[in-house]
Design a binder for these strands. Sequence first.
DNA 1: CATGGGATTGACT
DNA 2: GTCAATCCCATGC
Length: 203
Amino acid sequence: MSPVARAETTARPTPAGDRLGADFYARPVLEVARDLVGCVLVHRGVGGLIVETEAYHESEPACHAYRGPTPRAKTLFDEPGTAYVYFSYGMHTLLNAVAEPAGIGAAVLIRAIEPVWGVEEMRNRRGRTALRDLCSGPAKLTQALAVDLSFNRGSLIEGPIEIRTYPRPRDEKAIASTTRIGISNATELPWRFHLKGNAHISA
DNA sequence: CATGGGATTGACT
DNA sequence: GTCAATCCCATGC
């Protein structure tokens, strides 16, 4: 049975697989971004499979850390595995996983997940919408998973927001890299990663 | 302190 | 396809 079909018929099974630790996040941000595709993101039992990510690094001007550890960007320099949550367009919160060793400003934006666990709760938060619209964008998934600004600087390794491996062999060839979405600087870098053909990506 | 711009979304032409 | 909503924060005077 597919994960989605299972979600419709089963009450919140605990996602199997190991929770990712500091060693996973403390690597080059491009590796972390690619490897997060296919992993599980859940908040108190509600979540799904990560299908789209983007990498950001202090060395390029699209990254909030480009101008150093300002009040907003200081989270990006925290311990690997920290959640960086920020407010955008006056109404949306976006979730990132801080990567690279502490002191280096870098993070992976979680842009989309395929809903699997707690789909009904997600619908309650997002309103009546097609499954493909539930979490197919960085602000959609934070709304569906009830992730707000209070989670900024929290731990993805120990906190209520969890990222786990998914216990199924992953086909590396199924992951495509393209340019990032919605930015006006460093638009040429192919630092966006997504599962080819997945119905729940944002683009 | 005033100003301008978003790592977006949903409604509408 | 276009466009407004809405507010934190980075910047500059």
